[in-house]
Design a protein around this nucleic acid. Structure first.
Ligand SMILES: [Zn+2]
Ligand SMILES: [Zn+2]
Ligand SMILES: [Zn+2]
Ligand SMILES: [Zn+2]
Lengths: 131, 131
DNA sequence: GCGACAACGACAATGATTGTCAAAAACGCA
DNA sequence: TGCGTTTTTGACAATCATTGTCGTTGTCGC
């Protein structure tokens, strides 16, 4: 259905990608844009948004949408996984739960739902943020 | 800690609450506001928003935040549960997964996270929406 | 009934995200 | 290396759900 779209290498795309590569934890588009500016990289905010969207669509980065906040982006490891996030500092651990995956699919199937996907996020206070 | 806050009974609060009671599925604040107007109820949009927030904070209704859409509200059954939602028509089934709950808590504890909570949503296409 | 104070609501403000579109940059090819 | 085509960029405007404002109204304990 779609093939002809040629993705071009640009300075801006590389800059965003490189920044994400060395970044720990989740960051918003505005955050990343500010960091790029501090580094002297000249990248427009609109471009940052679009690049992040593209990377997310391509499955190269993960998106998290905290209640009442901006979208947060992070470069993650390959494959399907979920996140255990510290509410205070944002420290994130990737967690895998094969049992959960099969449970979700089974539950959906039992109710006749097809084309199933899911979202799962665990929030807590990490050791260093626990007083 | 907090007690002095007296909640008052108002026509508007009753109207919103009553509407939610007879409503199936999730609906946005703007939706509910429009329905109230059609019924002849005179309720301000701001009030609808704040009433829904109040009910959600009190745990009387559930909130869902679909990707790129408005917040959706629904009167749900008591107790902790999750939702299996049809992407096409919004038909929603409440599902309980005790195993998932304990798994989430255990994973968080293993990493030293405390004060743990989680979000879980399953999406799919319901039987009637499957061609 | 009174009065304190919560609740209301029309309206303005916010703020993240998206749309626009002319100008700049990539890239295939010569 | 130069050229034409096509994508990408980015400053700016627009969108739009949600929140803030603040004078008015309605509740409710007394
Ligand atoms: Zn922490
Ligand atoms: Zn999963
Ligand atoms: Zn359906
Ligand atoms: Zn749960």
């Amino acid at each position: 259905m779609s093939e002809g779209t040629a993705v071009r290498n640009t300075r801006q795309r590389s800059a965003v990608s490189a920044l994400l590569a060395e970044m720990e934890g989740f960051h918003s588009a505005q955050d990343l844009h500010a960091m790029l500016r501090e580094r002297g990289e000249r990248v427009g905010l609109t471009t940052v948004y679009r690049t992040l969207q593209g990377l997310a669509d391509a499955g190269e980065i993960d998106v998290m949408r905290p209640p009442g906040g901006e979208h947060l982006y992070r470069r993650c490891s390959e494959g399907h996984h979920h996140h255990l996030v510290c509410r205070a500092c944002g420290r994130t651990v990737e967690v895998a739960g094969p049992a959960v995956e099969t449970w979700a699919d089974r539950v959906a199937a039992q109710h006749g739902y097809t084309d199933v996907s899911h979202t799962l996020e665990i929030f807590g206070t990490c050791p260093t943020c626990t007083p």
